[in-house]
Design a protein around this nucleic acid. Structure first.
Length: 837
DNA sequence: GATTATCGGGG
DNA sequence: GTGTACGATAATC
């Protein structure tokens, strides 16, 4: 009895899954009121699959089907039928209803003639047939039979998604006893799961055993293994089992006690591998965690395009790899790279090839590596989870799914939900032919202005706050409004895209206000962090709407809209630049939604001579201080923002002491606190030698910190001199390139391929994925043939390093300052000539 | 320079 | 599961 009362206090909808055996939706709730929370399974069997057929008369449908007299190909149908006597399409239809709906497709052009498009300003519901069928997986097959009859709609929305949309189910949220949603982020029990294998080549689940399972949660942090590591300082972190079979069994026993499992690439690797190994030992993989369920829950590996997805019903598997890929912008997404980015920690990496040896020699490096893999997976999971929960709630789809969706897919589900709420029938996805047609479409993007090259001082950076979303709203751009003239569009009801965006941005504005209030009151509590995550996720979703319109797979695709948005974007930025220059700024560089500018002293000089100085008092000063420049900038912003449409705002982003502008998309800036920001210049790329990277970095630093061109020149000259004198650590000359396929598969040759061949000839092994580090040595053969490993390298090729490594990254920078390649190259010689004279 | 192919993460 | 990637970079023309 006491338990019952507690149970009522709060429950969280954790996970949902379509159960094809029971033809129902399994809903996993977590009861939070209990001392030990418990998962409960509820079955939803009332919801029935359906789709729409464009006719107002059910009889027409039956007559048509009778006329067809088509028997269904039973092979296509599963689950199997009780009696496989002949089946007709109409036997699988359970009901046809006439309902009133707004058919969105009526209002969009999409290849039609303009005369066939209905007027959105007079949009209204019309009669259409809602066709119910017996089984969800029959919808698509049955729909095929209607192709000759007429249009059908919403036949490809997965059953579970359909249910979430129609019933307004909010996942990963707390429900109180009166079924109201509580906004706080639920406390979930999370565990990170990772494993190590014994394998000498590519892992093969038939023979390569799992040797360690690494688990990390709030109350359990262990590496489970079956080989005793003697004298290890890590003994406290190790749990021993008898063998691999016991290892797998123990892993399942522990994992099933948690709500959330974090992995890094578990979709494609850990779970499929675990499943295969468990099959070998005939272990029943039962992850069932619900107190009242009777069926075993096993890992479901489904195909998602090229990749796989691993789902355990009732437990939320969060694979952090796809999340890191969509939320971070890195060149590499190995676990170490992401850990470095998020926590600024250099995580030790282990070469996979060394694992067997470490295992045999009981090298504890392997234990530490295993332990840290789980630890950082856990930290990363906790870092991303609140944001992902917010995405799941806003989009209104299960966390498992939204965490694997890209932003366009999330926008689509958001729109499907809005469309349903507005009693609309959503447009269909494109056929494969129109998909190909759409994919070919290309259009002009943002405006990028050629920079004022060289070193600039005292720079302000200004940008539009969410430019594209605000253009979509203020110009009412949507597939159904785009056919109207500008004026007409702005005076009519908002289309679905601007309407959805408007709701999102108003919510974000409201949150921002609440946050400001909390900051003032110094309330950095749970509520604060929840709001912070919510506003962040709204920002991501709002910024994805423009991209969604140009996404060829989108239901609400519209190339016209996308083109219009970038066109208006270019107009706004160009007009703003003009106004900035009229005001007294000199714009140095602009890209899409923002620009860098300095104060134009030259123009003021001219202006003074021409007309007797009417400009602001401040501009009379010989040179503006940083504070004065910012005051002027804010004054300019105020004027601009008064003229801009509502919701659009140009913002002050920052002040920079100095900047170096090389070409479009290639520049570097130094902030007032000395922090350097580099864009598009190659310093970050791994395949260059240290000497090339270090020289470029030193040159950028010299130019930004001191504005000293001569110092930059000197740095380059010194490097060249040192190379000539042999005054260089050979390690700094190593060039690193990854082998991306087997040596035999390369059609052409390259230095790292030649080196890999040499390694093989010497009897050592090279594998796909190895990074080959080599030096180019002296000689007359081709460069590829002169590539050597450090230990076999003789004298290095001085000219190669000067011409192909050191100079290319710095030449463009120096050219932007008016210094030629010749001057840099010959400076050494000239120096010698000077000595002769 | 433009177009086509491949690769990613995990061990 | 009433479904499918995609975006960057290297290789090649």
């Amino acid at each position: 009895m006491e338990k019952e009362i507690e149970t009522l206090s709060k429950k969280i909808l954790m996970d949902l899954d379509y159960n094809s055996k029971d033809l129902c939706i399994d809903m996993y709730y977590k009861n939070c009121g209990l001392k030990k929370p418990e998962i409960n399974l509820q079955k939803e069997c009332e919801f029935k699959p359906y789709f729409y057929v464009d006719t107002s008369e059910p009889k027409e449908i039956y007559d048509y089907l009778d006329g067809l007299n088509q028997e269904i190909d039973l092979k296509k149908l599963e689950p199997e039928f009780e009696n496989n006597t002949s089946l007709k399409v109409q036997d699988l239809i359970t009901n046809i209803e006439i309902i009133e709906k707004i058919v969105y497709s009526d209002y969009i052009l999409n290849g039609k003639d303009i005369s066939e498009v209905s007027d959105f300003k007079n949009k209204k519901e019309r009669k259409i047939c809602k066709v119910y069928v017996k089984y969800p997986n029959h919808v698509k097959i049955i729909r095929e039979y209607f192709k000759e009859f007429g249009k059908s709609y919403e036949f490809d929305i997965p059953f579970l998604r359909r249910y979430m949309i129609d019933q307004d189910i909010v996942p990963s949220a707390k429900y109180s006893e009166d079924n109201k949603i509580d906004n706080s982020i639920p406390e979930l029990n999370c565990i990170a799961f990772d494993m190590e294998l014994y394998c000498k080549k590519e892992p093969n689940a038939k023979k390569d055993p799992i040797i360690m399972v690494n688990l990390f949660s709030k109350d359990y942090q262990k590496v489970i293994t079956y080989k005793k590591f003697e004298n290890s300082e890590y003994n406290g972190c190790v749990d021993y089992v008898k063998d691999e079979k016991e290892l797998i069994q123990k892993t399942i026993e522990i994992l099933k006690q948690y709500d959330v499992i974090y992995t890094y690439n578990g979709d494609n690797f850990d779970f499929p591998y675990l499943k295969k190994r468990a099959n070998i030992y005939e272990i029943e993989l039962d992850f069932d965690n619900a107190s009242n369920s009777q069926q075993p829950q096993i890992i479901k590996i489904s195909k998602g395009g090229i990749n796989r997805k691993s789902k355990i019903p009732g437990i939320i598997h969060i694979d952090l790899y796809p999340i890191a890929r969509k939320l971070l912008n890195l060149t590499k997404y190995k676990l170490e790279n992401v850990v470095q980015e998020l926590f600024k920690i250099n995580k030790e990496a282990v070469d996979y090839g060394d694992i067997p040896k470490m295992w045999e020699t009981e090298d504890t490096t392997l234990l530490r590596y295993a332990y840290e893999d789980a630890l950082y997976t856990y930290k990363m999971g906790n870092y991303f989870l609140p944001l992902e929960i917010m995405f799941s709630r806003i989009v209104n789809q299960p966390l498992y799914d939204t965490s694997r969706m890209n932003s366009s897919q999330m926008v689509e589900f958001l729109l499907l939900k809005r469309s349903f709420e507005q009693n609309m029938i959503s447009p269909n996805r494109p056929s494969s032919s129109s998909y190909r047609e759409r994919a070919k479409f290309s259009y002009e993007g943002g405006y990028v202005r050629e920079p004022l090259k060289g070193i600039q001082e005292d720079i302000v950076s200004l940008d539009f706050m969410s430019l594209y979303p605000s253009i979509l709203i203020s110009h009412n751009i949507s597939p159904e409004t785009v056919i109207y003239e500008e004026k007409e569009r702005e005076n009519m009801e908002l289309g679905i895209i601007p309407k959805t965006l408007n709701e999102l941005l108003s919510r974000r504005k409201h949150i921002k206000m609440l946050l400001k209030d909390k900051i003032q009151k110094n309330e950095f509590d749970e509520e604060y962090s929840r709001l912070e995550h919510e506003q962040k996720s709204i920002k991501v979703l709002a910024n994805s709407h423009y991209g969604y319109l140009a996404f060829p797979m989108a239901r609400w695709y519209s190339d016209k809209c996308a083109e219009m948005v970038t066109g208006l974007g270019r107009k706004y930025i160009q007009e703003t630049i003009e106004k900035a220059e009229e005001f007294g700024f000199k714009v140095i560089y602009a890209d899409t939604d923002g620009f860098y500018a300095k104060w134009d002293y030259d123009k003021l000089q001219k202006g003074k001579k021409e007309e007797n100085d009417k400009s602001d008092k401040l501009s009379n000063l010989p040179k503006l201080s940083k504070e004065e420049l910012i005051i002027l900038t804010k004054k300019f912003l105020k004027g601009i923002n008064e003229e801009l449409p509502e919701g659009m705002e140009l913002e002050f982003e920052g002040h920079f002491k100095r900047g170096l502008f090389v070409t479009k998309k290639k520049y570097a800036l130094i902030e007032d606190d000395g922090h350097i920001v580099v864009k598009g210049l190659e310093v970050v790329r791994r395949d260059w030698s240290n000497i090339a990277k270090d020289t470029q970095q030193a040159v950028i630093r010299a130019l930004l910190e001191d504005g000293d061109v001569n110092l930059a020149k000197k740095i380059i000259k010194n490097t060249i001199d040192n190379l000539k004198k042999g005054n260089i650590d050979k390690n700094d000359l190593l060039i690193h390139t990854q082998l991306t396929k087997n040596i035999e598969e390369y059609k052409s040759t390259a230095p790292h391929i030649e080196v890999a061949k040499k390694i093989k000839q010497r009897g050592d092994s090279v594998r796909v994925g190895d990074v080959i580090s080599y030096i180019i040595v002296k000689g007359s053969r081709s460069i590829s043939e002169r590539a050597e490993l450090l230990e076999y390298a003789g004298d290095y090729d001085i000219n190669y390093y000067i011409d192909n490594q050191v100079l290319p990254p710095v030449i463009r920078i120096m050219e932007s300052l008016g210094i030629s390649e010749d001057e840099l190259k010959n400076s050494g010689k000239q120096f010698k000539l000077d000595q002769f004279m």
